[in-house]
Computed example of a mutant assay.
Amino acid sequence: MANQVEHALTEEMLPLLQKECFVTIATVDFERKIPHVKAISWIYAPNGQTVRFLVDHRSRMIDNIKANDGVVLTLIANGSTYSITGSARVVTERIEQLPLKLSLIELDVKEVRDVMFYGAKMTMTPSYEKTYDAEAAAKLDRQVMEVLKKTE
Rank of each mutant, 00 (worst) to 15 (best):
40 I>F: 06
59 S>L: 05
61 M>E: 14
91 V>W: 01
79 G>E: 01
44 Y>N: 01
24 T>A: 04
43 I>D: 02
18 Q>V: 05
73 L>T: 08
15 P>W: 08
84 I>P: 00
95 I>L: 07
77 A>R: 08
33 K>W: 12
43 I>R: 00
62 I>F: 04
75 L>F: 06
16 L>Y: 10
58 R>D: 13
39 A>M: 08
56 D>K: 11
64 N>T: 05
77 A>C: 08
79 G>I: 01
51 V>Q: 03
53 F>Y: 09
89 R>H: 06
66 K>W: 11
18 Q>I: 05
47 N>P: 03
85 T>S: 15
88 A>D: 00
44 Y>E: 01
66 K>I: 10
86 G>A: 03
62 I>T: 02
77 A>E: 09
37 V>K: 06
38 K>A: 13
69 D>Y: 07
89 R>Q: 07
82 Y>T: 04
93 E>W: 10
77 A>Y: 06
84 I>K: 01
45 A>P: 00
86 G>P: 00
74 T>L: 14
38 K>L: 14
76 I>T: 14
53 F>N: 06
47 N>I: 01
36 H>T: 12
19 K>V: 12
85 T>L: 14
96 E>H: 13
16 L>R: 11
39 A>C: 08
61 M>N: 13
88 A>Y: 00
50 T>G: 01
73 L>S: 09
84 I>V: 04
87 S>H: 08
92 T>F: 10
37 V>C: 05
83 S>A: 08
16 L>T: 10
62 I>H: 04
72 V>H: 12
69 D>A: 10
28 V>E: 12
16 L>F: 09
65 I>R: 03
46 P>G: 02
70 G>W: 13
88 A>H: 00
24 T>S: 02
26 A>Q: 04
83 S>K: 06
19 K>S: 12
27 T>Y: 02
16 L>K: 11
68 N>A: 09
62 I>S: 04
70 G>N: 13
21 C>M: 10
20 E>I: 11
77 A>Q: 07
37 V>G: 05
35 P>N: 04
43 I>F: 02
22 F>T: 15
45 A>G: 00
20 E>Y: 10
94 R>Y: 15
54 L>M: 06
18 Q>L: 06
61 M>T: 14
41 S>Q: 13
55 V>I: 06
51 V>R: 01
22 F>M: 15
25 I>W: 03
26 A>C: 05
91 V>C: 01
29 D>G: 10
32 R>A: 12
81 T>L: 11
33 K>I: 10
65 I>H: 01
82 Y>S: 04
94 R>N: 15
54 L>E: 05
72 V>E: 15
31 E>Y: 14
83 S>E: 07
28 V>L: 13
93 E>S: 13
62 I>Q: 04
58 R>S: 14
90 V>R: 00
23 V>D: 03
67 A>P: 09
32 R>V: 11
73 L>R: 07
88 A>W: 00
28 V>S: 12
